[in-house]
Design a protein around this nucleic acid. Structure first.
Length: 559
RNA sequence: UACCCCGUGGUGUAAUCGGUAGCACAGCAGUUUUUGGUACUGUUGGUUCCUGGUUCAAGUCCAGGCGGGGUAACCA
């Protein structure tokens, strides 16, 4: 990595932390990643995770994973498990795993304290009345008629709420702050609501559940979080976060907000992602086209690439959108160094070597990874009939095409030089086979007389080829910014060819490919052996990202 | 028409106490190459949103504009 920012990131959050360390305000940095287990993690979370965990690592601190499970109606154990799995997959290890639900007793005790201080009250208004009396961004709210109940009455009512004396929605506990505050979050925010629901962690012990604002800062405080990092939309909550800690007189962490991650062609709204899944526009939450961590994993994006990307994009307060090309750069960068090379022909046409002895098979030595000599070599069978890529031959080529054409010699990668001599066509004029001759002195790919060829193409022995399913993926959307589709209808921006399933002729060694392995199919793209749909000796490959293709680009430009 | 946050090349970001705009990706050109990949080299592109002000000196400070984003769930 040549980018200095990747080894020593510099941003406003790290600056702040250095200050706090230097001033002695904090001794050891403690951060946390606090997802609500109500959905799957996506690429945006990868940035949040990388940020909090990396910062803790860099400053010799700790980072907790905390399930923000304060709303039993939305959460599920399945998500808790998936979240832990995804964080581990990214390569991070939490110092402690906590659940906001574990703090319910403490939270309740603090709530009574606030009531006793006259800073919280029980409100009998229903949700609609509360919303109506909150006012608007331009007009102040009005006090609840129940706002001035006595401490004694509030305490009795709160205890009755906790004891289950009321039905859902009948009463709430509210902080008593200022109904005219210009920050709507400060207009007597709801702290507890009544929900007679079973909680995955606390069972039926509670029928009142804390709201985010009443739980989050206090959870941070209990855990001794020094820097509570979150996204920009929580800026307006910071005054309330501070108010609760100050009113309680407890340790107050510093909340710092940064811009969330946006990437071209990707959506990270939970609601929109759900529409894609439920509408059958993708094959589930782990569809390789989804921006979920599980989807990206099946696409073949290495976690190291995601982390490198997240570190590179940095932390700032401006909401922007990153180019897909940047993400793909990190994916290619990692895969180039670590993916073994294989040969595969996805759009095959037969190449027949006329002067090759009938029935003879030779094993060619092929390098597994030119970027990593330690990866060794493998044997690839070579015979009289081979599959080559249809696009690697042109009968009437433009002058800048230097692959195979009649009368021209090219190199078969790790094989021999061959020269095209004739072609066979069907009734419609489609090429069905190309006849060529090979030079026996060029085994391995070099001519003893030193003559050069302009191109090297890949091939697979027809006799030995593995016929396997190959899934080609492209952007899910045709527009880089699907979120701002006309009328919000992002579904009409769906790319109709985002997934194409086909079969390819693969070199026989790929029969042994295991789910979870990734390869570079030379001259084409990086491919991931799917860990879900592959079966022993029946691998299924997902195209992760294509190789850069200067020829294709030049052609596109010529048009 | 309330409050909060923000405004640096196409994109994203950097620039100690204010010292004369850097990096990555993308683009372009070339070298190397048994992947038209990789690597390497060079290069285009910025009146640092605008206008004033303070200063020897402003992307950094101040004022006023303009522009963008966020906020009104018993969600997080």
């Amino acid at each position: 990595m040549t980018d200095a920012a990747d080894s020593a990131p510099s941003d406003f959050i790290r600056d702040r932390i250095r200050q706090d360390l230097a001033s002695g305000k904090v001794q050891q940095v403690v951060t946390r990643f606090p997802p609500e287990p109500n959905g799957y993690l996506h690429i945006g979370h990868a940035k949040a995770i990388t940020t909090s965990f990396s910062i803790a690592q860099e400053f010799g601190g700790r980072c907790n994973l905390r399930m923000d499970d304060t709303n039993p109606g939305a959460e599920d154990q399945e998500y808790v498990d998936a979240i832990m799995d995804d964080v581990r997959w990214l390569g991070f290890t939490w110092d402690a795993l906590y659940h906001a639900a574990d703090y319910f007793d403490q939270l309740y005790a603090w709530a009574e304290q606030l009531v006793e201080k006259g800073l919280a009250y029980v409100d009998d208004q229903d949700a609609e009345q509360i919303a109506a009396n909150r006012g608007t961004v331009t007009s102040p709210g009005t006090n609840s008629p129940f706002r001035d109940r006595s401490v004694t009455e509030n305490l009795e009512l709160l205890r009755a709420m906790k004891a289950g004396k009321f039905g859902d929605g009948e009463k709430v506990l509210r902080a008593k702050i200022d109904m005219a505050h210009n920050n709507l979050n400060m207009r007597d925010p709801v702290m507890y609501r009544i929900r007679h629901m079973h909680h995955a962690r606390t069972g039926d012990a509670w029928c009142i559940y804390p709201m985010y604002d009443w739980a989050h800062g206090q959870s941070d405080s209990i855990e001794g979080i020094t820097h509570s990092l979150c996204t920009l939309e929580f800026e307006h909550h910071r005054p309330l976060y501070d108010w609760f800690c100050d009113s309680l007189g407890i340790y107050k962490p510093q909340q710092i907000e940064f811009a969330r991650l946006n990437v071209e062609y990707m959506l990270t709204s939970k609601r929109k992602l759900l529409l894609l899944v439920e509408g059958g526009h993708v094959d589930g939450w782990d569809d390789p086209r989804m921006p979920t961590l599980r989807g990206l994993r099946r696409r073949g994006y290495p976690p190291q690439a995601l982390v490198a990307f997240a570190r590179h994009v940095g932390l700032a307060k401006v909401n922007g959108t990153h180019e897909m090309a940047l993400l793909e750069h990190f994916v290619r960068d990692h895969l180039n160094k670590h993916a073994q090379r294989r040969m595969a022909v996805l759009d095959p046409v037969k190449l027949i070597i006329d002067n090759w002895p009938e029935g003879q098979v030779e094993l060619m030595q092929a390098q597994n990874n030119p970027e990593d000599p330690g990866a060794g070599t493998r044997e690839v069978p070579f015979g009289k009939e081979l599959w080559i890529e249809r696009g690697d031959f042109m009968e009437h080529p433009p002058k800048d095409f230097f692959r195979l054409t009649l009368g021209r010699e090219v190199r078969l990668r790790s094989g021999y030089f061959v020269k095209a001599e004739a072609i066979e066509k069907d009734a419609k004029g489609h090429i069905t086979a190309i006849h060529c001759t090979y030079d026996p002195t060029t085994k391995g790919g070099n001519a003893p007389d030193g003559r050069k060829v302009k191109a090297t193409i890949h091939w697979v022995s027809a006799q030995h080829a593995l016929d396997a399913e190959v899934r080609l993926y492209e952007h899910l959307f045709t527009d880089p910014d699907p979120a701002s589709a006309d009328g919000g209808d992002f579904l009409k921006l769906l790319n109709p060819v985002s997934k194409q399933v086909g079969r390819g002729k693969l070199e026989p060694s790929l029969k042994e490919a295991k789910g979870g392995e990734f390869f570079q199919f030379e001259r084409l793209a990086y491919f991931y052996c799917d860990h879900i749909d592959s079966k022993p000796f029946l691998p299924v490959f997902h195209r992760t990202v294509t190789l850069k293709d200067a020829w294709k680009k030049a052609q596109a430009k010529a048009k």
